[in-house]
């Protein structure tokens, strides 16, 4: 299995073509046809969490050129798994715009959206894994945690 997140995500060349300018604040809202995630008019229930992982499907990547700019950028950025928060930050889009666009692309089979289980915070085994993982993080001088 090729594993996500081994390398820093910055290396994704697809995003560097951005030109660096701040995306127009209005256009993405036009793209979402005025829908805002988590409010009436879209999905019922709470908005999907900001840490939700999004990955392009091979179909999405193959059809990359057929998409308009924001959609194309999202798919290209999702060659490797990304959180919604990372997507919004890297593409300079409002989080709620990314939620809507990602959901559109999911419905078209261009992205897979991995909504995390809601109860991870109540799962002792998840907490233990996080604790064990964090304990292996060395301090600034490379030393591991004592004890």
């Amino acid at each position: 299995m090729k594993v996500a997140g081994e390398e820093p995500v910055e290396g994704d060349g697809a995003l560097d073509e951005d030109g660096g300018g701040r995306a127009s604040a209005v256009r993405p809202f036009l793209l979402t046809a005025g829908r805002v995630a988590g409010t009436a008019g879209t999905s019922k229930g709470p908005p999907i969490p900001i840490e939700t992982q999004v990955v392009a499907t091979s179909g999405g990547l193959a059809a990359l050129d057929s998409f308009a700019s924001e959609h194309r950028e999202i798919i290209a950025a999702c060659r490797r798994p990304q959180s919604l928060a990372e997507l919004a930050a890297r593409l300079r889009l409002h989080l709620n715009v990314v939620r809507v666009l990602a959901d559109d692309l999911r419905a078209q089979g261009r992205l897979r959206v991995y909504v995390p289980r809601a109860n991870a915070a109540q799962d002792a085994s998840v907490l233990r894994r996080v604790i064990d993982g964090l304990r292996t993080v060395p301090d600034s001088r490379g030393f591991l945690r004592e004890g």
Binding site: K2, G5, I50, E51, V55, A56, P81, R112, P116
Partner: peptide
């Protein structure tokens, strides 16, 4: 686990916690 049938090219994302 294995990615299953769907799309073998799609990388399995990690479980995100925050």
């Amino acid at each position: 686990g294995s990615p299953g049938a769907a799309d073998a090219a799609v990388q399995q994302p990690p479980l995100p916690v925050k």
